[in-house]
Computed example of a mutant assay.
Amino acid sequence: MRQRYFILLSLFASVPAMALTFQTRLENVEWKVEGDKFECRLIQPITDFGAGVFVRRAGEQAVFRLNASNSVLGEGSATLLAAAAPWQPGRGDIDLGTVRIGRGNVLFNSSQAQAGRLFRGLLEGRSPLIRHYSATGGLSEVRLLPVKFRQAYGEYEACTTKLLAKNFDQVRQSQIGFPGSGNELDAKGRADLQIMLEYMKADPTVNHVMLDGYSDNSGNRLTNRELSRRRALAVMNYLQENGLQESQITMRFHGEQYPLVPNTSVANRAKNRRVSVRLERMPEPPKPPPAVGITNPATLS
């Protein structure tokens, strides 16, 4: 009798506590695709919770994000799984590691590697599953379902083909190199500037460019200062030839001052021959007030 009691006790101890589970009913599952040139999103709303969202910014791979409309999950660590479906016997869940649950509307952003494995899992019929234990031991689970995923994934992939080459964080500052001793732009420099110009065309709020020209220390200071001016001017001319107005560009030049690296080798000196290009958002100038008074004397009677 005593042995039977211990057997029953061990069985009950192995059964996990009842989980509080959030998922949308099968017949109500939907995937939505949203996006523009800057970002693409693949979203599954989760009933009474929020949404699971794959987000891919221009110039980056996707991450998976859990949005919440309530604070049912406390802060702390959670496990991210690509869970096998009940109708897939013999397939176990894939543990993708931990994520850190925070405060606010966005509870966490996964790594790019985790998001990639979730994509592969969904295409295989698996469910993204977030498993979280509270400080008191309570278990909460948030699950997305793979229903209707494949078609939505195709739409999402089509969106990503229209993304810009880089996002603002990546494009906001660039070093245009001058590997030789002159001041002519090479193919790489022109290509880097084209990426910045494409971004400015797509985002009218980015409307100003700051140029800073530099040289190495090979010549005398006056010669180096003039070279740094000519390099900055070469970049400025290229930007103007491609649609920017002179009023949108501020140009400075510094000669051999402020080297990126010590001028102690041929390779280092080549790195210091450069123009730093920085994109900025400048406020629009205030519009003049409307004219007051009579502007057309011919209307006088």
Rank of each mutant, 00 (worst) to 15 (best):
31 W>K: 02
32 K>H: 13
32 K>I: 13
34 E>Q: 13
35 G>Y: 08
35 G>V: 02
35 G>P: 07
37 K>T: 15
38 F>M: 03
39 E>M: 03
39 E>D: 09
41 R>H: 10
41 R>D: 06
41 R>L: 14
43 I>P: 12
43 I>Q: 04
43 I>D: 11
45 P>W: 07
45 P>Y: 06
45 P>Q: 02
46 I>G: 07
46 I>P: 12
48 D>W: 12
49 F>D: 04
50 G>E: 10
51 A>Q: 10
52 G>L: 04
54 F>Q: 04
55 V>Y: 08
55 V>D: 06
55 V>L: 05
56 R>C: 12
57 R>K: 15
57 R>W: 14
57 R>P: 06
59 G>E: 12
59 G>P: 00
59 G>A: 07
60 E>C: 05
64 F>W: 15
66 L>E: 10
67 N>T: 13
67 N>F: 12
69 S>A: 13
69 S>I: 02
70 N>E: 07
71 S>I: 13
72 V>R: 06
75 E>A: 11
76 G>D: 09
77 S>H: 07
77 S>P: 08
77 S>D: 12
78 A>D: 06
78 A>F: 05
78 A>V: 06
79 T>I: 08
79 T>P: 00
80 L>I: 01
80 L>K: 05
81 L>D: 08
81 L>N: 09
82 A>P: 13
83 A>C: 04
83 A>M: 05
84 A>M: 03
84 A>I: 00
85 A>Q: 08
86 P>E: 08
86 P>R: 12
86 P>Q: 09
88 Q>K: 13
88 Q>A: 15
90 G>M: 01
92 G>M: 03
92 G>K: 10
93 D>L: 03
95 D>G: 01
96 L>I: 02
96 L>E: 03
96 L>C: 09
100 R>I: 05
100 R>A: 09
101 I>G: 04
101 I>A: 07
102 G>T: 10
102 G>H: 10
102 G>E: 10
103 R>I: 05
105 N>G: 08
106 V>P: 08
106 V>T: 14
107 L>K: 11
107 L>V: 00
108 F>I: 03
108 F>K: 03
